[in-house]
Design a protein around this nucleic acid. Structure first.
Lengths: 334, 334
DNA sequence: CTGTTAGCGCTTTCAC
DNA sequence: GTGAAAGCGCTAACAG
């Protein structure tokens, strides 16, 4: 079955293409009732479906945005993506999601592919490894929003958690429960990923504020696979930690795995708080006390911010970092 | 900064657009070394980026496929989507994912949007509520693959689990462990969703095969929120079940929640097997015995099948249902 | 109120 | 080896 085009409809309804176009774009201002009816009829009869590609070419607008996430494995990413998609679909935008897999090279490839596809804007969880590319996007006034991570010296609106506060909430709760020897463990720090850096920073500040000395042996930012070993070392110290703050969902799972494998009881043997909500937090034994990111609000902010940028390209708005407040959800692990 | 087009490159390199086009499409067959160099140079200098929309319009090919998932909340969906994306990106296709949220109306809207966007093909986890639409896609020979669910009488290649076998594996394991009073609980059956129907069917057949009578009070297909109540009823029976088969990940979590809330020990108070792998299966206490779907193989099959259809539009291949074999992963819950 | 016209940026014969 | 020209399906002035 050959594709039926606007020209076919026009012919069938005995009008010109432009009239059909008007009709499709609801510019009924001065359209004759009869013409309208005829066009409607023809569209139905022929089973006409507009071709968005042709329209995009002409309008220079695809109603599609791209989302490039640094690592799709984090629950945070998937949660945020979900709300971004919701908001976009409400606004009739489509979303193409790409997973950079923590690789700047992949990130670059995806940004280029998405731009070739003429997406109207980009939400990026930046790997941080493509400063020049980011800068060229900014220079070209390409609608862009960063999520979760700050890229120093590149002026882009950024939606991010108040990470220091997240650690502070955890420390406060630990201390309130009587714990003083508190460890923090998170994934690798070599890439200077904002949340990890800031969470450790917040951890240190919070301890200082309460005049608890920071012990370097209690602080680890390492590869997932080494977390177990790291924990083993930490708990072999003369004074092992009494509590652990897991810097993100993946670390949290490793800590749980460690506890299981070493028959450590939580919170009896050590108390535990994780940053990031995980699907099983409330059904785990013990139910997990966690610091929750407001993923809904954050995804919504990023999406609306981007759509705004797209639709009001001119209005100069100041570049901002939007910090969102974490929330302590107390359950049983501390 | 104005967009630089192929015409700009052509002018700058002192060749015609068609030559540039040739260059971009690596048709170097008879191209002069010098011209090649000049074009290369110009592209770099001007920072030219091809416009895929224009190309798509001409070629009638977008290198984009759509995936419409019935319900994104299932871990199965996200796992499959992930591998579909991987395979597609390997083949230079982009993926637009839409969540129909179990609503045929949304599904319809998304199918139409995606077709308007001229996606080259569609992988659908069908809600089952749009038979006519599916049929019209088939009639128009639109590249289409169904996933996870069979739509009766609509001839579309379908990738799906051997669901009856999944139940059978579970029953076999239960029986081997000495359990005979085995319940099954899964999400609502009113929509006649293939996996749920087949898993219950498989459960019954497997029991029959071992001459265990099927007790209707042990079989429930209901809304998520009612699972707890249902379980309470089941365990209040004079002869409560000794083992529970959870029909999917969401049901599994509800069963776990029930066990927690009612202080039931697994597997002492009842044994448990779930269908679908969940992220926390190995770190839960007890570690969860589950039936795993080969999501990787399934996603890969769906994606390659679709790409094949797209790229060899003509070659008539027979419509098939591809059944994949589940696998029992024994841990501690049974 | 509706039709004519001129592209959007690219690919693709077919000449030269 | 390279260029000219037509056209993909649609939109947007501008006429009439």
């Amino acid at each position: 079955m050959r594709k039926v085009t606007m020209a076919d409809v026009a012919k069938h309804a005995n009008v010109s293409k432009s009239t059909v176009s008007q009709y499709l774009n609801s510019r009924f201002d001065y359209m004759g009732k009869a013409t309208k009816k005829r066009i409607e009829q023809s569209i139905l009869e022929l089973g006409y479906q507009p071709n968005a590609v042709a329209r995009s070419l002409k309008q220079k607008k695809t109603f599609t945005i791209g989302v490039i996430v640094a690592n799709i494995l984090h629950s945070f990413s998937t949660q945020v993506i979900r709300t971004i998609e919701d908001i976009c679909h409400e606004n009739n935008y489509h979303v193409i999601v790409c997973n950079a897999d923590d690789s700047p090279k992949k990130e670059k490839k995806y940004i280029e592919m998405l731009m070739a596809k003429q997406v109207d804007g980009l939400i990026v969880f930046p790997t941080g490894g493509n400063i020049e590319l980011y800068e060229s996007l900014v220079k070209n006034r390409y609608p862009l929003v960063f999520m979760d991570r700050i890229v120093p010296d590149v002026p882009v609106d950024t939606v991010i958690l108040n990470n220091e506060k997240a650690s502070e909430l955890a420390i406060n709760h630990f201390v309130k429960k009587g714990y003083e020897r508190i460890g923090i463990i998170t994934t690798s720090l070599i890439q200077k990923i904002t949340p990890r850096i800031e969470r450790i920073e917040g951890y240190k500040k919070a301890l200082n504020k309460r005049s608890i000395a920071v012990q370097d042996e209690y602080v680890r930012g390492i590869e997932i696979k080494e977390i177990t070993a790291s924990l083993e070392a930490m708990f072999s110290l003369p004074k092992p930690p009494q509590a652990i703050l897991a810097g993100n969902d993946l670390s949290l799972m490793e800590v749980l795995r460690y506890a299981r494998d070493h028959k450590k009881q939580i919170p009896q043997d050590f108390a535990l708080i994780g940053i990031d909500e995980v699907s099983f937090a409330s059904i785990y034994s013990p139910a997990l006390t966690i610091i929750k990111q407001p993923t809904l609000a954050m995804g919504e902010k990023a999406a609306t911010l981007l759509i705004e940028k797209i639709e009001k390209a001119d209005t100069e708005k100041e570049i901002q970092v939007y910090r969102f407040e974490p929330e302590l959800v107390v359950r049983e692990s501390c």
